[in-house]
Structures are given as structure tokens and as C-alpha cells.
Design a protein around this nucleic acid. Structure first.
Length: 581
DNA sequence: CGACACTGCGCG
DNA sequence: AAAGCGCGCAGTGTCG
């Protein structure tokens, strides 16, 4: 059953048009309204007693943040959407699309990764729908342009080799855009006092501006004493490297993995100094001042920001918050954090895609690596992990180089799939995820190097270089199919979770400080990181939220891989703080 | 002074 | 300078 679609776009003169389309694409009616009337219209159309958000139409618009942020600020949520910009990006390169000419010709929709207009807490008043909004980094917001692009996308999907998969991908990607906008609106509940406590414990109390924290000063002195160099800068890699050489420490770089292999009294304090320095510069007091407002950290999430389909983020390094600071992610009083991550998502996705019976059997328990040990191909969990990561990333040497060939005999279908993806990439071909997102074509320079390496008078070093970058691309495409399909699974998980949470009752009075009307009275997503979600839930909804997370994971598996024996077990905790169950 | 490249390290 | 994928961000250094 295909639902009603409501295409939203700008009209000449600053009004907004909403065109209702039946499943065949025929326009049934058209409304005209002022921009500030849009939230009310959406609220009215979403209103389905007892089934909030799930019974409404699919809103079609140029770009989700452009239209949806203001709607959200009015306290209104949309159930489903179709983000023309994101779907355009997918269809443009998808190998499943057999007639890409129209889509590719619509260059106005070719935006690449979005340029965050304003990621600082201030926020621009969305409808900056003036001239210039069709420049680079933007898309056409007019209703006519949206209708034309939607028609192109419908045709591209309808004539593709697998319309079902591309429709699912379009819906999942677009649902991700709704989640991203909502998570930005809600923010992560951030406990500044706890963050400060963690910093002070590691670094000493907050120093006055321009001063180094006391613990760092002490550790730096230890390093300088051990190097016999009282003035050396530890913050400049070139200077530090020279100082290390003067002290007789033979390293090619100052990276921690290389330093840690050295025996010298300066190494231990230097590594400690680097840890402290990283904590201070990346997530120190300055970070708190810059990013946390009224108990909320609000990064910008960027769906489709990574070529594989993973999200990127902007503002404060949301996807790289160190584990050490996780306890600062803390529920409001009377609320709980419900956190869940998928155990070994990528190898499970690979087993399902490849239909690898042996790998599916190994995945049957909570711990896939234990299952691989049980299969007898390796003897320790560590070997299983190194081997699987080597298979996914294209490891050829060291431990993974020894173990991966053994996996080939035990899991031939799974290994065949990633090996084939690597071979295709090395040849300059493209690969696609399970739902049809395709790898970016090899660029001109890459092709140039492959061609010139085989000319009769080519320098042998050119040939070596060509083979090396060919292997580099092979590792990329090998990983692309798995990382990208895992991202699709995660989008399906998020999409299902979001709608399940929306069915939970709105509380009459939640004791939480308002973070926007739509988020202060109901369990909502607060964080997402590739294979992990955190839901911020009123205490009385915590169990229901946990149940929703589990159901959504099962549903995602069934949606992508119907009938597959591979399941996707979760590690789930309910707590007032993240980082500890 | 800004733009850019590079290093290094946090996350999955 | 990971032998093996994908990111964002801060700091340093270089160039114009």
C-alpha cells in the first residue's frame, strides 16, 4: 500500500504550496498557505487517533532541515518524508538505476555534502528562501522544481532493476533526515558538573585562561626531565621528534602506537601527556563553553555525509565523544537513558548479504566471535576478531594476513562477497550496497594512473604506484559494501524505533526542563552512532523504550533480509548515565 | 592575516 | 607510519 504524498515547496511571492499526489503521481489538489501555517497543516494531516505519526502522508520536500526545523520548533513532528536532495544523491550513482540520464542532468540537485549554514547554537531563522538559495550547496525549494524532481526520481526508481530496494533505501535515508533534525532539536542531555569533575580529576582544576592545567604542567616537566631538554615543546610534532632523536629515541613519527614500542623513561610520561593534552584540547572546558547550553549539547547530524551512507556530524565532534566522557551524558531528573548497541553489526550484515550458512551459524549467539571460535577455524576470540576485521578491511599482513585465508575456507560465501567487491574496485568498477547505494566512480586521476602504467615506456615505479592505488581502491570497495549495508540496517532500525517511540503516550507533566515541546513529554532519540542508539525516556517509559529498541532491531533485520537466519542481538542498558549500565 | 596541508587522535 | 575501512577536529607550520 502506497500512501498519499504531499509535496511541499515555495511559490512565487513567498507563499508555500502543498500538492497532494495519488500513488500514480497524479495531482489531486493543491493548497496555498503562508510559511507559518505549515506546522498546523502538518499537525492536522498527521493526526491519527491512537496511531500518531504512522497513519499520515509522506511529506516530500527539497531538503529536510530547510523545511522541518521550523516545524519542529513549533512542536510538530512529521511521520514520514521523502528528502529529494538525499534521494537524488543516491540515485545519481546507483547501479540499480538503468536510465540515469534525467537525474544526472538535474544538476541543481547535485549538492554534495551539505555546508552547515549555521551550526552554532544561535541558528538562522530557517526560511531564508531568498535569492541565492539555488547556489552551490543548496537545492531548488520551489514547488515546481520539487514536483519535477520527484517525477524524475519516481521514473528512475520505477525503471530500475529493483524498485523495491531503492524505495526502501529512499524511505530509510529520509527517515534518517527526520531523526537527525529531531536529535538536533532535542539535544543530548549533558551534565556540565560531571564533565567538569572528569576534567578536574584528570587535569587538575580548571586553570585561568591561557594557563596550562596543573597536572599537564607536572607531566610535561617529567617528560622534559627524562629527555634532558628543559624547554622542548611537546605540542609540536616536528620539534618533539627532533628532541626524541636527540635523546636517542629512534622513531619516524611521534604517534602513540610507535612511541609505545620504545623503551625509554620519557615514553611513559609522554604518552600520559598526550592523553591529557588531547582531552583538554578536544573536550576540555572550552568545549563545554562552546557547545553546551542549558544542559543540552546540540551537534548537527548530517545524514548521508559519508559516501558509504553513514552519517557525519558537525559541531563539537559528536561522533567522537571519548568514552571517558560518556558519564557526562546524563538523563534529566526523573528520566532515564536507554542505550543499546548491536553486537558485531558489520560481520552479521555480511553473513546475511552473502547468505553464508556457516557464518550465520557462527552468528547465532550473542557473540559472533565466540561462534567463530566454536566453528573451529581459529582458537581464540582475539584471532576471530582480527580475522573478521581483516576480511572487512582488506588486511593482508601480520596476524590478519595469516587468519583471513583460513576464513576463506570456512566462510566461502561471505569471503567471496567481499573479495569480489575488492576485485571490482581494483579494476575500476563500482559496487553497491544491499539496497543500492553505489560507490563513487574512480576519479580521473586514478584512471589516468592505471592507463599510463601499462604504456610500453612506463616507468616501473609508475606501475608499482598504479597497483598500489588500485589495491587501495579495492580495500575501499571491499569495505563499502559492508559498511554501507550496515548503515542501511542502522537507518531502518532508527526509522522503526522513531515511529515506535512516537506511539508512546505523551506525559501530561514531565519533570524535565523543556528542550522543545515535542521532546519534553515523551521518550525520544538522543544519540546515534553507527551501531548504537541512546533514548532519553521518562522513567515510566524506559522499559517501553527498551522494548521499542529491540522490536525495531528485529524489524530492521526482517526488512532488509527477509527470512534470513542472521539475527542482530543488542547490548542494552537502562541507566541515568551513559557509559555504565 | 587567512587558506591550506599535515599530523595526530578520538569514535565506529 | 598502522600492515587494514570510514569520519571530525585541534594544533602546528607554511605560503602568499
Amino acid at each position: 500500500m502506497r500512501r498519499l504524498r504531499c509535496v511541499v515547496g515555495r511559490l512565487p511571492g513567498g507563499r508555500i504550496g502543498v500538492a497532494d499526489l495519488d500513488p500514480s503521481g497524479t495531482e489531486l489538489r493543491r493548497l496555498t498557505l503562508d510559511p507559518e501555517e505549515l506546522p498546523a497543516l502538518i499537525a492536522q494531516r498527521e493526526e491519527t487517533p491512537g496511531d500518531p505519526l504512522t497513519g499520515g502522508p509522506r511529506w516530500v520536500w527539497s531538503d529536510t532541515p530547510t523545511w522541518y526545523d521550523s516545524v519542529l520548533r513549533s512542536g510538530v513532528r512529521a511521520g514520514r518524508c521523502h528528502d529529494l536532495r538525499l534521494v537524488h544523491t543516491i540515485l545519481q550513482h546507483s547501479q540499480l538505476v538503468q536510465e540515469p540520464a534525467d537525474i544526472r542532468a538535474a544538476i541543481a540537485w547535485e549538492t554534495g555534502p551539505i555546508v552547515p549554514a549555521e551550526s552554532r547554537p544561535a541558528e538562522a531563522t530557517l526560511f531564508d528562501l531568498e535569492a541565492g538559495s539555488s547556489g552551490p550547496g543548496s537545492v531548488p525549494h520551489d514547488l515546481d522544481a520539487a514536483l519535477a524532481e520527484l517525477a524524475r526520481q519516481d521514473r528512475a526508481i520505477g525503471t530500475s532493476t529493483d524498485p523495491g530496494r531503492l524505495r526502501l533505501l529512499a524511505a530509510a535515508e529520509s527517515a534518517g533526515a527526520l531523526v537527525a533534525a529531531e536529535m538536533h532539536g532535542a539535544g543530548m542531555p549533558w551534565d556540565v558538573a560531571e564533565h567538569d569533575r572528569i576534567l578536574a580529576e584528570a587535569l587538575g582544576p580548571r586553570p585561568s585562561p591561557g594557563q596550562a592545567p596543573s597536572r599537564m604542567v607536572e607531566v610535561a616537566a617529567e617528560v622534559r626531565a627524562a629527555l634532558g631538554d628543559p624547554l622542548v615543546s611537546l605540542d609540536s610534532p616536528p620539534k618533539l621528534l627532533r628532541a626524541l632523536h636527540r635523546a636517542g629515541i629512534d622513531v619516524a613519527s611521534t604517534s602513540q602506537w610507535e612511541l609505545s614500542e620504545q623503551e625509554h623513561p620519557a615514553i611513559e610520561p609522554l604518552l600520559r601527556y598526550k592523553k591529557l593534552s588531547r582531552l583538554l584540547t578536544a573536550n576540555g572546558w572550552t568545549w563545554i563553553d562552546e557547545w553546551v547550553r542549558e544542559g543540552r549539547y546540540r551537534p548537527l547530524y548530517i545524514p548521508g555525509g559519508v559516501v558509504t551512507g553513514r552519517w557525519a556530524s558537525n559541531g563539537g565532534g559528536a561522533l567522537q565523544i571519548p568514552r571517558q566522557l560518556r558519564p557526562a551524558l546524563r538523563a534529566d531528573p526523573g528520566w532515564r537513558l536507554v542505550g543499546a548497541d548491536v553486537s558485531q553489526l558489520e560481520p552479521r550484515v555480511l553473513a546475511a548479504m552473502a547468505g553464508d550458512q556457516a557464518m550465520a551459524a557462527a552468528a547465532a549467539g550473542q557473540d559472533l566471535y565466540a561462534g567463530i571460535v566454536a566453528s573451529g577455524v581459529v582458537t581464540t576470540r582475539q584471532e576471530a576478531k582480527v580475522g573478521v576485521l581483516g576480511a572487512l578491511y582488506g588486511g593482508t599482513s601480520g596476524d590478519s594476513g595469516r587468519i583471513v585465508p583460513r576464513l576463506r575456507t570456512t566462510f566461502p560465501a561471505a569471503m567471496g562477497l567481499v573479495d569480489a567487491a575488492a576485485a571490482t574496485g581494483e579494476r575500476g568498477g563500482d559496487v553497491s550496497t544491499w539496497l543500492g547505494r553505489s560507490s563513487p566512480p574512480a576519479d580521473q586521476e586514478w584512471r589516468q594512473r592505471q592507463n599510463s602504467a601499462y604504456l610500453p615506456d612506463a616507468d616501473p615505479r609508475e606501475g608499482e604506484r598504479a597497483r598500489r592505488i588500485a589495491r587501495d581502491r579495492g580495500r575501499f570497495t571491499r569495505n563499502f559494501v559492508v559498511q554501507g549495508t550496515a548503515a542501511e540496517w542502522a537507518l531502518a532500525w532508527l526509522a522503526g524505533l522513531r515511529l515506535r517511540l512516537a506511539r508512546l503516550p505523551m506525559l501530561d507533566d514531565a519533570s524535565a526542563p523543556a528542550s522543545g515541546p515535542a521532546f519534553s513529554r515523551q521518550a525520544h532519540l538522543a544519540f546515534f552512532l553507527h551501531d548504537e542508539v541512546i533514548v532519553h525516556a521518562p522513567q515510566e517509559q524506559a522499559d517501553a523504550a527498551a522494548q521499542a529498541i529491540r522490536e525495531a532491531a528485529d524489524a530492521a533485520g526482517e526488512l532488509l533480509f527477509p527470512g534470513s537466519p542472521v539475527d542482530f542481538p543488542l547490548d542494552l542498558q537502562i541507566s541515568d548515565r551513559s557509559g555504565k549500565g
